[in-house]
Each structure stands twice: as C-alpha cells, then as structure tokens.
Amino acid sequence: MSLLELSGLTAAYGAVAALSGLDLAVEEGEIVTLLGANGAGKSTTLRCISGLLPPTGGEIRFAGAAIAGLSAERVVRLGIAHVPEGRRIFPGLTVRENILLGASNRRIARAALRRDADEMFALFPDLARFADTLGWMLSGGQQQMVALARGLMARPRLLLLDEPSLGLAPLIVQQVFRIIARIRETGTTVLLVEQNARLALAIADRGYVLETGRLVVAGKPDALWNNEDVRAAYLGGKRLSEESGAR
C-alpha cells in the first residue's frame, strides 16, 4: 500500500477545471516531484491533498484512509504538512513563534514543544540568531527555512512542498535542497512541486510531469530529464499545431 494515492482526481476553481483525472502514488520514504509549467495543476494537487480545496471528484487515500474533502485542520492532524508557495510566514510573529505554531496539529506539553523547537534550531542553525526577529523582516531564504522548520514541527509522515526555490538566489536554493534531502533521511516522505526541474530531479526518486491538469509522463529522474516532453513543457519547442494535428 502506498502512503499516498490519488486516483481520478479532478478539481476546479469555479468554472475553470484545474485537474482532470490525475492518478499518482507516493511510497513511504520517497521524494517524489511534480513538474510542469505554470497552470499545469501542481499547486492545485497539493491544495487538494491538504484540504484547502475540496476536489470535485476522485479519491485521495493517505495510509489507506480516504481523506478527500476533509478540512485542512483535520488533514494536518493525520500527518500531512503542507508548506505552501510563497512561504506564508506570519509576518507579525517572531521566528520562534512561527516555528512553535507548526505543532498546532499535535497535543503536546509546553516543555516538549520547546524541545522540538530547539531541535529545529539545531537543524537550521542559521535561524537561531533570528529566533526573536519578526517574520516580515526576514529575507526570502530565511523565510523558506522558517517555513520548512514550521512544517517539520507538525512531525508529518508526508511533507508537501510547493516551490521552495521560488524567488531565491541560486546559492540559497542549493541550501534549501540540501535540507530537503536531509529531511528525507529522517524518514519523512516528501511530495515536491518545483519549477526548477533540474534541482528537483537531482534529489527526487521519481517524478511526474503535468500539463493542463493531466499527467503527461512519469518516471525516474534520468529518464525524465532526457525526455523531450519535459523540456517542451518548460521551454516550448513543440508546436501547438502539431499536437492538435495528432488528435
């Protein structure tokens, strides 16, 4: 049994279809990446899983249980943490407070909560210096670290990461990805949405490529990296007219 299984998932924003029948599976301990251009449905997939967007059809099974349509509050209690696009750090709270709130899904004693937070500061040593800085004063890279730490405070079995490299300088992006690789070593499964295909494929075990709400191709990183469809999804090169001619 896979840890996460999507079958025939459909979703829409109002009248606009965002996902049309997506099948996907994530095994325990894997890093799986979802690739595709803007508007392909990657973020929508994560939003459906974490309960922000109720799907219009299909199934989501987590550790065997059907979770489609549950509220975000309930999903995170089951062990799925979602670190959304744009970090979404609480701007008026300090780094420490942001991180402490990450454990809101667990019933936990104050002392244990402090201990968990200290663990995060050990995992992200750069953050310790900023523990009492307000969220809005951080740089993008620091915010991403806080977002990851906050996500990990939920002690998730499955971590959903949406565009962790967004707007970050290359050097910072590499740091972030090293941490993602480390997170997997702690036994947390990761579903990673990323525009930076090269980096994502470098740390992933498997990848899926979406286009307009559909699965185009799935496979191992090497195969995907050399696949024309993948490159086309990002940089073009495949004529619209040709594709329609084939239909």
Binding site: Q174, F177, R198, A202, R231
Partner: peptide, 20 residues
C-alpha cells in the same frame, strides 16, 4: 533567447553539483 544558457538555467534550474 530560448537557447541562451542563462535563460535555460533560469527555467530548468542551475547545474545541481553537490545537492545530493
């Protein structure tokens, strides 16, 4: 532009030397 190495890197990602 679409073959420019900086553009390809910006879209597909920098070379990921030591990430893993």
């Amino acid at each position: 532009v679409l073959r420019h190495p900086d553009v390809v890197a910006a879209y597909l990602g920098e070379v990921a030397e030591d990430v893993t």
